[in-house]
Amino acid sequence: MIWLVLPLAAVGFLLFGLSTDDHHLRRFGRRCAASSRRAMRIGGWAAIGCCFPLAIDLLGWIFGPIAWAGLTMLGAGVAFVMLNFAPAGLRVRG
C-alpha cells in the first residue's frame, strides 16, 4: 500500500519537470505557455502534497516520514530518468 506514494510523487515531479522550458519543448514541441505552466506547477505541488498525509496515514508517525522521504526521492529519480532517458520520439501532441 505504501508504494502508492511512489507513482504520486513521480507524477508530481514529472509535472515540475515538464513545466520547465527545455523538457516542455522536447515533449510537447512548443514553448510552455504561462497558464499551462501554472497549472502544471499547481498539479505537481498537489501530487507531492498528498504524499505526506498518505504516508503518515499508512505507516504512522515513526516510519511514515521515513517512507515518505524515501519514496519521494525515488519518485523524483523515476521522473528524472523518464524525462532524460525516454526516447526522443516520445512526445505529446496537441
Binding site: F13, T20, D22, H23, L83
Partner: peptide
Amino acid sequence: RDFFTLRR
C-alpha cells in the same frame, strides 16, 4: 530548478 536537466 536545474535538477531535471541532464545535458548528455
